[in-house]
Lab assay of single mutants.
Amino acid sequence: VLKALERTRQLDIPDEKTMPVLMKLLEEAGGNWSYIKLDNYTALVDAIYSVED
Rank of each mutant, 00 (worst) to 15 (best):
V1R: 03
V1M: 11
V1N: 02
L2A: 13
L2C: 13
L2K: 12
K3R: 12
K3E: 15
K3W: 07
K3S: 13
K3Y: 08
A4K: 02
L5D: 03
L5F: 03
L5T: 04
E6Q: 09
E6A: 10
E6W: 06
R7G: 02
R7I: 14
T8C: 15
T8D: 04
T8S: 04
T8A: 08
T8E: 04
T8K: 04
T8H: 04
R9H: 04
R9N: 05
Q10K: 10
Q10E: 14
Q10D: 10
Q10I: 06
D12G: 15
D12V: 04
D12Q: 14
D12F: 10
I13T: 00
P14G: 05
P14L: 06
P14R: 06
D15K: 02
D15F: 06
D15T: 03
D15H: 03
E16G: 08
K17D: 07
K17W: 09
K17L: 11
K17P: 02
K17T: 10
T18A: 15
T18K: 02
T18C: 06
T18S: 13
M19D: 01
M19Q: 02
M19A: 03
M19V: 11
M19C: 12
M19R: 05
M19T: 05
P20M: 13
P20E: 13
P20D: 08
V21I: 14
L22M: 04
L22G: 00
L22P: 00
L22K: 00
L22V: 03
L22E: 00
L22N: 00
M23Q: 09
K24N: 07
L25D: 02
L25T: 01
L25Y: 01
L25N: 01
L26P: 00
L26F: 05
L26D: 01
L26W: 02
E27Q: 13
E27G: 08
E27C: 10
E27V: 08
E28L: 13
E28N: 10
E28I: 12
E28F: 07
A29K: 08
A29S: 14
A29P: 02
A29V: 13
A29T: 15
G30N: 14
G30K: 13
G30F: 09
G31I: 04
G31F: 10
G31M: 09
N32D: 15
N32W: 04
W33K: 00
S34H: 15
S34P: 04
Y35G: 11
Y35V: 13
I36Q: 00
I36W: 03
I36F: 04
L38F: 13
L38D: 11
L38E: 13
D39I: 02
N40G: 07
N40S: 07
Y41V: 02
Y41N: 00
Y41E: 01
Y41F: 10
Y41Q: 01
T42V: 11
A43V: 11
V45E: 00
D46K: 14
A47S: 07
A47M: 09
A47D: 03
I48F: 03
I48V: 08
I48G: 02
Y49N: 13
Y49E: 06
Y49D: 07
Y49R: 14
S50N: 13
S50A: 14
E52T: 14
E52F: 12
E52P: 12
D53C: 14
D53L: 12
